[in-house]
Design a protein around this nucleic acid. Sequence first.
DNA 1: TCGAAAAATGCAAGCGCTTACATTGCATAT
DNA 2: ATATGCAATGTAAGCGCTTGCATTTTTCGA
Lengths: 348, 348
Amino acid sequence: MRSVRSSENNDLPTLEDVAARAGVSTATVSRSLNEPHRVSKATRDRVMAAVRELGYAPNFGAQALAAKRTNTFGAIIPTMENAIFARGLQAFQEHLSLHGITLLVASSSYSADLEEKQIRALVARGADALLLIGHDRTPQSYVFLENRKIPHVVAWVYDSAQPRLSIGFDNRKAMAALTRRVLDLGHQSIAAIVADVSENDRARERLQGVREAMRQAGMDPEDLRVVETPYSIANGAEAFAELMRHEERPTAVLCGNDVLAAGALKMARSLGIDVPGEVSITGFDDIELAEIVSPALTTVHVPHREMGKGAARLLIALRDGKHPGSSVELEATVQWRETLGPVCKAVE
Amino acid sequence: MRSVRSSENNDLPTLEDVAARAGVSTATVSRSLNEPHRVSKATRDRVMAAVRELGYAPNFGAQALAAKRTNTFGAIIPTMENAIFARGLQAFQEHLSLHGITLLVASSSYSADLEEKQIRALVARGADALLLIGHDRTPQSYVFLENRKIPHVVAWVYDSAQPRLSIGFDNRKAMAALTRRVLDLGHQSIAAIVADVSENDRARERLQGVREAMRQAGMDPEDLRVVETPYSIANGAEAFAELMRHEERPTAVLCGNDVLAAGALKMARSLGIDVPGEVSITGFDDIELAEIVSPALTTVHVPHREMGKGAARLLIALRDGKHPGSSVELEATVQWRETLGPVCKAVE
DNA sequence: TCGAAAAATGCAAGCGCTTACATTGCATAT
DNA sequence: ATATGCAATGTAAGCGCTTGCATTTTTCGA
């Protein structure tokens, strides 16, 4: 074990070194750094000079241990592989860094079990608070968060039925609005390509939205053809192909997100199916991709940045023991582009 | 200040609580957890039972403070907004988590100054090692890394002239190969849309690659028209429009990455310019986007996942004081798709 | 059966910082 | 002058864990 005092060796400078150099106690140095107003200007200047001369930087572990906080927040998103959460996360991070908070990111690969592990890992690493996506997770996850009293907020969803603090939009309502637009154009035979709904409330709500709109339009929700498949371009393409193999083709395919829709669009092209002439395709999320594909994707615009920033704000308030207010609902609106059109009888 | 011992209050259980419950010393508990082989099976079982019963989890700060390591690595990537680094980072993370290491991600927005700040922030947060992108950064960044002896590896580039440990591909060579393909098709008038090359060696090398290929083909590199602009779809589109406003239009536009190329492609479409009939467009990176756009992008395929995994391996070796070996060069190959074609005289 | 080496365990000193509480110094009111 | 209050600073006790060294227990060859 090391026994020499820090001033006698060549390790990194410590608070004590700074204190010695500035001719004050370690307490004063600590305060100069963390609560400058509690220290006289003269002393503070002297301390700061010493800090600079020594190239001092606080030791993270020691700080965390003594202060019982790390100034690190965690976020667990379903995937980093595509851009669905990128913009929101970027905004989240930007807002956090304004407050001197660092962001730690982990991904759960859309698995509740893996997410539970990641929650534990991030908390073990000292995350002061957590950003989570969606309400669906293992009961143990919630128990753990409760027990450890970890401030957390759920984003990407708003569900007034859920007691938990959240910021996002009503996935069902948004999808229902989009579906109404589709039905208004005369589509009678529609299909949906969605993610596995068993552990994903966003996907589930979106699907419910479609059914709800059908019901309102006097259609039977049972008639909706649904393909469940993990989010990816390739899967979207495959699912679309499957739908098209059926003898009675749908005239509109509603996809659970833009990635699936992009895949569907790609497959339509390679099958020589005209979009939106023969089949209309819609997405959800309005990521950059939606604007790039051709024809450009009609989708649901999601307020990524507001969500990220709002989540940061809520979480900081929560961590500081302030009352964060209640869940906030943002609007997700239909973004009209080119892949949605009226049913075209001419083709038949 | 709290003065009661942990066993008397309702805080989280500590090592001491576990030790008391198992009837051993804290040292034995610590060893059971970290070096199980140094403890007899009987004791270990008893300790583990106590751990489970108490729901014990080690305190991160204390562990970091005492062990002088956090089992956390950091990565600083230029941007999280698009998918350029996503796949590589995902692979990096997957490999790290196999070794019980958590990943901390920060983004520098392609700014060397900001990157320096992020480096300091991550190190302050206890990152044991860092993944960095490209060789270009402030001298102070390198001084800092040297002084603190932070293991680090540079990814996304391989440059035999650089002494620093790196894993990646030769950007210049890859771009030169692509350019040769372009020139072989008869293109005489070519242009490039690249990122700001002043703080970005990848962009610089790619540009040099184009010039090198031109020189080899007996052309004057001075004839290359170059537009510098930050990576984004919108900027790619704008740059392309600018090139097309010129009276003598290039017949091929080489873009610094797929995002710029996607923007260019989008603009070509809205200007009614046929790709690759009138103008060929190429990208770089081969992200998912490249396959989605229509026509599909001819680009340079980058071994994202191998790079991420390899970087993790190098970094772990480095941290453990083992000899990681030397820099590794991976191959980046031309990915032929649809946006590159021969010069079409017929149009004129 | 005994002694020595090896294995298992315990002891306790830190790791570098924060912060409750004590002390000092100084301006202001009396 | 003296008492009073407050701001500035210091003192020192932890925070919960790891680990070098000391001590105890076990193992095993002779």
